[in-house]
């Protein structure tokens, strides 16, 4: 079955995602964060560590948060008061939890739709290939906070009845 609303579904997620990042950084870290850029991206130009959340239900797609090492160290320091100099399980776990709450908050803003979130998975490497629906051009939103830079990248399409999940 064909997928429809390829780009509008992704666009509809932009404002909820920006709001989610701002609100969650304030609640979790008491940190101000501002959006610095927004662009379409077809290449995987990620930071060192990326948390990926699969989207299902009424939508199909992926939601990612990517951060450089320094940002991860700052997050662990701020949230847990622990020093880190290498990306370890706790750093990856912290990014996964951040992805989980931000994606959860954003999807709550699309209240008329049923979006199911998969469990987040952290991967390392700038060249990681993320699976987006074939017809989707993912959106990348860059943010800057007092804990460093991060980006959110996502692409999704609304399913039509009869699509397999």
């Amino acid at each position: 079955m064909p997928l429809i609303e390829t780009d509008s579904a992704t666009r509809a997620f932009i404002d909820p995602v920006i709001e989610a990042v701002v609100v969650m950084f304030d609640r979790m870290f008491e940190s101000g964060v501002r959006q610095t850029a927004i662009s379409s991206t077809q290449s995987d130009c990620l930071f060192e560590t990326t948390s990926i959340v699969g989207l299902a239900g009424d939508y199909s797609g992926s939601f990612c948060i990517s951060a450089p090492n320094e940002t991860l160290f700052a997050i662990v320091k701020r949230a847990l008061d622990l020093e880190r100099t290498e990306v370890d399980r706790l750093c990856r776990d912290s990014l996964n939890e951040l992805a989980n709450v931000i994606a959860g908050y954003a999807k709550d803003r699309l209240i008329e739709d049923d979006i199911k979130l998969g469990l987040p998975t952290a991967v390392q490497g700038r060249g990681v290939a993320i699976n987006y629906p074939q017809t989707v051009e993912p959106v990348r939103i860059d943010f800057e906070s007092d804990m460093g830079r991060l980006m959110v990248v996502f692409g999704l399409v609304r399913r039509t009845k009869g699509d397999s999940q």
């Binding site: 709450v101 994606a103 959860g104 908050y105 709550d108």
Partner: peptide, 9 residues
């Protein structure tokens, strides 16, 4: 007590 994200309320 369930701990849930906003999206799972």
């Amino acid at each position: 007590i369930m701990i849930t994200t906003e999206g799972s309320k």
